[in-house]
Every structure is written in structure tokens, then in C-alpha cells.
């Protein structure tokens, strides 16, 4: 094996992992606090990507400049969805939440299909095709930007959870929801805020992905199983775990594609998912 090809595959795998991390950090926050599997994560990402797409096409707002707007909009969407639908309809049962978020993803995806048709859309911005030399590989600038941004996002979330009052309340609810209620924390509100923050991450992810990725009603499928794998791998609720897990999965996808070929290469992620669920369902960083 040529060292340059291998090196390029490693770099591409890490960059791919960066994109996955953008999607997985929100999912791991939602899991860590609410102990629910948010099946609607992929379709919420799709929604955010259409948001970023239309902001660019109709309002001429650059995707990177749209990040604050999309983060705020997605936070509001997540907060309202939890308050109005998920929390109210689930009667406090975890499996119901799984099914409601599944129903939600079916509705969102098909509403998108109904209005936008099945075609995929791509956007071109001035920096879409700019390449940067990175060791043996030439990588597109937007991918490098999203990689760096995923590191920043993880750090920002870790800081928020560790240092702010809301973050402390979130940690308290995640550890012991009854105890948190006893010391006067509004648990339902914290659930909705956590869900909102998890979805807000997708607002940033969408803006960072769209210069180098297409958008279609089913684009979320590409990320959903991968993101679940990452969250379980890194330990549900751990940001560092999600980041490391993303890089491992990105590398696995890139390298198994290189060695096993395009079609069979995808098996790597499923195998990791099955093995980690069987042998270490609490993730690689648990004690």
C-alpha cells in the first residue's frame, strides 16, 4: 500500500469524523440528560440544512454568517417540540419517546418530500471548491473549516455544561432527576432546554455541512445510524467521547472503504456498532 494513499485516506477519514462529530454532540447531550434516543435527529438536521439552503438562495446569507441565526432558530424549534409534543405525549416512558421521535422523523421527512420533491440540491459558494494542501492530501476548505468548528463546538458545549448555572442544572437532572426536583430545579424545563441545545447544535452543523454537501429530504439517513454508533461508542452523554468516537468512525469508514471497496466498506460501521453494543454498551470511556 502506497503511503501517500494511506495518508490521504487517514486525513479524509479524520475530516469525515469532524462532520460526524457536529451531528453526534447534540445527540449525545440529549441522550445523556433525557436518557432517550432521539430518532428525529437526522430529520431535524435535514430541516436545518434546508433552512441554511434557503437562507443562501433566497436571502443571500452566507452559510457561515447564518450560523447564529440557525442555532437560535433550531434551539427554539427543539424547545417547542419538546414542550408541546415529546414531553407531553410520552407519558414519561422512554420507549414512547423513541416511538414519538420516530413518528416525528417520518412526518418531517415526508413533509420535505411533499414540498421539495426527492431531488438533491447543492449550493456553490465562492469557497466551495477551494482546496488546501494538508500533508499528502488536498482537502476542500469547507471540510477543514467544519473539522475545526466541530472541535470548537465540543469545547464550547463542554464549557457550558461545566461552568454555567444552566449547565449545572442540566448535570444535576442527568444524574438524579428526583433529587434535582427536590432542590428546586424545574426538571421539565431543563429537559426542554437540553433538547433545544441538542437540536441547536444541528443548526450549526447544517451551516457547516452545506457548502460541501448536498441536501435532500432523506439526507438525515446518512447521519442517523452513524451518529448513534458514535454516541454509543463514545459513551452516551460524553462530549469528548462523541468527538473521539466520531474520529474513530470517520477513520473506520475511510480505511474500510480503501481496503474492502466502496460497497462492502460500509460494513465496518455496522460491525463496530454491534460489537460495542454487545461488549461495552456504556462506551469505551466508561470505567
Amino acid at each position: 500500500m502506497d503511503a501517500t494513499i494511506l495518508g490521504a485516506a487517514v486525513i479524509n477519514g479524520l475530516l469525515l469524523g469532524g462532520s460526524y462529530a457536529l451531528v453526534a454532540v447534540g445527540l449525545t447531550l440529549i441522550y445523556g440528560v433525557l436518557h432517550i434516543i432521539n430518532f428525529a435527529h437526522g430529520s431535524m438536521l435535514m430541516l436545518a440544512m434546508y433552512g441554511a439552503y434557503f437562507l443562501l438562495m433566497k436571502a443571500k446569507i452566507d452559510p457561515y454568517a447564518a450560523i447564529p441565526l440557525m442555532v437560535a432558530a433550531m434551539f427554539a424549534a427543539g424547545y417547542v417540540l419538546y414542550r408541546g409534543l415529546i414531553g407531553r405525549f410520552s407519558h414519561g416512558k422512554d420507549e414512547n419517546i423513541l416511538l414519538i421521535t420516530l413518528g416525528l422523523s417520518i412526518v418531517l421527512e415526508n413533509v420535505a418530500l411533499f414540498f421539495f420533491k426527492g431531488d438533491s440540491q447543492t449550493v456553490t459558494v465562492s469557497y466551495s471548491d477551494r482546496m488546501v494542501a494538508l500533508g499528502p492530501a488536498l482537502v476542500p476548505l469547507p471540510k477543514l473549516v467544519s473539522f475545526v468548528a466541530s472541535l470548537v463546538l465540543c469545547a464550547a458545549l463542554a464549557w457550558f455544561i461545566a461552568r454555567t448555572d444552566t449547565g449545572r442544572a442540566i448535570r444535576a437532572v442527568a444524574k438524579e432527576r428526583h433529587g434535582a426536583r427536590l432542590v428546586g430545579i424545574d426538571v421539565e424545563k431543563i429537559f426542554a432546554v437540553s433538547y433545544g441545545i441538542g437540536i441547536a447544535c444541528l443548526g450549526a452543523a447544517a451551516c457547516l455541512l452545506i457548502p460541501s454537501f448536498y441536501v435532500s429530504p432523506s439526507v438525515g439517513h446518512l447521519f442517523v445510524i452513524v451518529a448513534f454508533t458514535i454516541v454509543v461508542l463514545g459513551g452516551m452523554g460524553s462530549f469528548i467521547g462523541a468527538l473521539v468516537g466520531s474520529l474513530i468512525i470517520g477513520l473506520t469508514e475511510s480505511l474500510s472503504g480503501l481496503f474492502l471497496g466502496e460497497a462492502l466498506g460500509q460494513i465496518g460501521i455496522s460491525l463496530i456498532f454491534i460489537l460495542i453494543l454487545l461488549f461495552r454498551p456504556t462506551g469505551i470511556f466508561s470505567k
Binding site: E95, I225, A263, L264, I267, F273, I274, L278
Partner: peptide, 30 residues
């Protein structure tokens, strides 16, 4: 396999999803 390793509830749902994906990829590649 899943029950020997004690998977329940949402974890069982996830592993069945993973198996279906693995079978899809295998039939797609072989």
C-alpha cells in the same frame, strides 16, 4: 447474542437496527 449480553429496551432496538443494516450492506456487496 443480544440477550446473552443483557441488552434491553432501547439498546435492543438499536442492535436490531444494526443487524438489519449489516445484512443490507452484505447483500448489497456480495
Amino acid at each position: 447474542l443480544s440477550f446473552r449480553f443483557g441488552l434491553r429496551g432501547s439498546y435492543f432496538a438499536l442492535i436490531t437496527l444494526a443487524f438489519a443494516e449489516a445484512f443490507r450492506i452484505l447483500t448489497n456487496a456480495l
